[in-house]
Amino acid sequence: MSAEGGITKQIIMKTLVILSVVTILEIGVALIIGAYFPTFPKWLLNLFFVVLSLLKAFYITAEFMHMKYETKGFVFWTLIGLVLLVWFIIAMLYEGNSWLVNNSTWG
């Protein structure tokens, strides 16, 4: 059985607080910037959201899904596959954008 000793109720509560705070931060920033700073660069805002979401994902995986307490080999073999998504995302977004450009330039 895996090292269940790792996680405690304190850690669970701490994670809950972190996730809540990050979510509220996201919503807050979205609302404030949407309402008061419409000229704020969209890409920067989106980057901010992406980073915060990845942070949330990290906490859910590490604490709730117990990954922090598994052996390194196990974490490696399970999560390494996700690396493949990086190029998938980049290539597809680039493609999507190029359809837009194609349609407006040659359509």
Partner: peptide, 13 residues
């Protein structure tokens, strides 16, 4: 991920 990538692609297009 594939579905969300579809979302991203179509949104970019």
């Amino acid at each position: 991920a594939t579905l969300l990538i579809v979302y991203g692609t179509l949104r970019f297009s």
